[in-house]
């Protein structure tokens, strides 16, 4: 769809608003992200890409529920899974000023003050999310992440001895199932808008599902999401202070061993996701050397898995 055509379609779904400054932003692999103004209000468009088979309807339902539950998230201005509107499922979201690039958030001087409390901000946002009644987003399903990623790996038909070793460890050390809730599923720097004052908005809800709240905590601690900084929680802080902040906000105890189990699963998941992303290039769904290169990041995850499980086999 050409830019003029997209602008006209945006105007149509926004009640004839005057569309200007339409520009594509550098964005994720599963969707296109655009910025534009409608009657001089800055908005964001997310449009699903060809290779993504998820139901975007679940995503905008959970965004609305999260906003109602006090989690800082963009407002859903318009959204539809009807491809006839904009050529693909889409969401039009309120725009936030801020930074999402992890390396800048972790290193730039303007975020120095924010870095002193961002991990606590994350703990509070996750506690609020996890306290929402899952019935608020009825399309979300409980997923057994081990089974899901076992099947995902099998479907890819590539042999990965490291991943097999980790699947065995996960099965032998699986924690008991606690109360289930809405989990974000991809809560980490890169998917979070940050300002000099701290957390501004939690973005990218495409992997939200029903699960163990500790899944989000473990994922946030996965080494890939520390972006080279030697602090375990998102490159921002230590485990203990983060778990304490979450415990205080959620009024539940955090078992560090359970979070660790989810961290190991998270590292495995990211490894398998790297293969899936490269597969959308190899399968000619989206030709991109960026996606192709992601396939060669799998060994980073394998190395992290060996480090994480050292002495635990």
């Amino acid at each position: 769809m050409a830019n003029e055509e997209l602008a006209a379609s945006l105007s149509a779904v926004l009640g004839g608003a005057a569309i200007a400054d339409l520009a594509r932003l550098s964005g994720g692999a599963s969707r296109e992200t655009w910025q534009f103004s409608a009657n001089e209000r800055m908005l964001i468009l997310q449009r699903q890409r060809g290779g993504d088979i998820r139901d975007m309807g679940n995503e905008f339902a959970v965004l609305r529920a999260a906003r109602a539950g006090g989690v800082p998230v963009p407002e859903v201005i318009a959204a539809s899974t009807d491809k006839s509107d904009l050529g693909a499922a889409y969401m039009i979201l309120s725009h936030f000023e801020g930074e999402t690039i992890a390396r800048k958030i972790l290193r730039d001087d303007q975020f120095a003050e924010a870095r002193t409390h961002l991990a606590q901000d994350f703990a509070v946002a996750l506690a609020r999310l996890h306290s929402i009644d899952p019935a608020a987003a009825p399309g979300l399903l409980p997923t057994d992440q081990v089974v899901q990623y076992r099947e995902a790996l099998d479907a890819l038909k590539y042999s990965h001895p490291t991943f097999e070793l980790v699947f065995r460890w996960l099965e032998q050390n699986r924690p008991p199932v606690g109360p289930l809730c809405i989990v974000h599923g991809d809560f980490r720097l890169g998917n979070i808008m940050v300002g000099p004052d701290g957390l501004r908005a939690v973005l990218d809800w495409e992997l939200a599902h029903i699960g163990d709240p500790m899944e989000d905590l473990g994922w946030l601690c996965v080494k890939a999401w520390r972006f080279g900084v030697r602090k375990p929680v998102a490159g921002l802080g230590g485990y203990d202070e983060f778990f304490e902040a979450y415990s205080r906000a959620a009024n539940v105890a955090v078992d560090a061993d359970v979070v660790r189990w989810w961290e190991v699963l998270g590292t495995l998941k990211w490894g398998i996701m790297c293969i899936i992303q490269t597969q959308s290039h190899l399968g000619r769904i989206t030709r991109s050397h960026e996606l192709a290169a992601i396939g060669r990041r799998v060994c980073e995850n394998e190395h992290d898995l060996f480090l994480a499980l050292e002495g635990k086999w």
């Binding site: 490291t162 060669r296 990041r297 060994c299 980073e300 394998e302 190395h303 060996f306």
Partner: peptide, 10 residues
């Protein structure tokens, strides 16, 4: 083997 892969990839 993973270390060998990393020596090429990163």
């Amino acid at each position: 083997s993973v270390r060998d892969k990393l020596a090429v990839a990163n």
